[in-house]
């Protein structure tokens, strides 16, 4: 073998060695990411189990209490409100699982006319009772607006419902406000609350999949992630801003249908 051929071979060997090193590193990184994903998925399964068990327990206990015939009229009303709300909670969680799986499979988005005013009113009505049980004031303002957008009503309902549900869930006293208004060519649904608000460190991770501000707290950490994805898929967005003097405001926007 000539000297030139030998040098060429040596250079090849160096390149190959470097490639092996790079690929090994990439494999290690991929393995790390997979392990992390597996861990977050397991946590999600645990959380979703928790999120399904609790409303089921509430439904069962209230049915049992109502059938006993021992409750007075005020208690019966409270019990029935809790029944209604927890059936809604169960439906919402099941919807969350379906939408998460649909998103991961890259499911198609339906394109229908949606009248946002009516859709938001339905979502507001669903959460009124639970807000009342918690002693919260809840109001919906729309100034007569009922803009049409184009999209998938099941997804849009999920996204808006999730923001209202979070506001009621994470607020212990005060008020939840839902406002529908127009900003240029966009319809904006703003959901404000007087809860604890979002800390600076939490803000960066707020829309990440499986992120929960309080690991021991309620929720599964996918609601905001899905809501933002839904809004983006419709040409809109979800943004957060602090409420003054206290609380959070989440705004979801959708482009208004062009006539």
């Amino acid at each position: 073998m000539g000297k030139a051929s030998y040098e060429k071979l040596k250079a090849h060997k160096r390149i190959l060695k470097e490639r092996v090193r790079q690929n090994s590193r990439a494999l290690l990184e991929a393995n790390k990411r997979l392990k992390k994903l597996e861990k977050t998925r397991n946590q999600y399964l645990f959380d979703i189990g928790h999120e399904l068990k609790t409303p089921l327990a509430v439904v069962e206990m209230n049915l049992s209490a109502l059938f006993s015939g021992q409750l007075d009229s005020h208690e019966k009303e409270l019990s029935m409100r809790m029944l209604k709300h927890n059936i809604v909670r169960l439906k919402k969680k099941i919807e969350e699982i379906i939408q998460l799986s649909r998103m991961e499979r890259g499911g198609q988005i339906q394109k229908n006319d949606i009248y946002l005013g009516r859709l938001v009113k339905t979502a507001f009505e669903l959460h009124k009772d639970f807000a009342a049980v918690k002693g919260l004031a809840i109001k919906y303002t729309h100034n007569g607006h009922d803009p049409a957008i184009i999209g998938d009503d099941r997804l849009v309902t999920f996204a808006i419902d999730n923001l209202i549900s979070n506001a009621v869930k994470f607020t212990d006293r005060g008020e939840v406000g839902i406002d529908l208004h127009l900003e240029g060519r966009h319809a904006v649904v703003s959901v404000s609350d007087t809860g604890k608000g979002i800390g600076k460190t939490q803000m960066k991770k707020l829309f990440k999949e499986f992120y929960k501000g309080d690991p021991g707290g309620p929720g599964t950490g996918v609601g905001l992630f899905i809501s933002k994805k839904i809004a983006k898929a419709h040409g809109g967005d979800v943004v957060y801003e602090p409420n003054r003097p206290q609380g959070a405001i989440f705004k979801i926007t959708f482009p208004i249908k062009k006539h």
Partner: peptide, 11 residues
């Protein structure tokens, strides 16, 4: 959870 507390109380 308020509803868990209230439900156990009613039960």
């Amino acid at each position: 959870e308020a509803e868990v507390r209230d439900s156990i109380t009613l039960l």
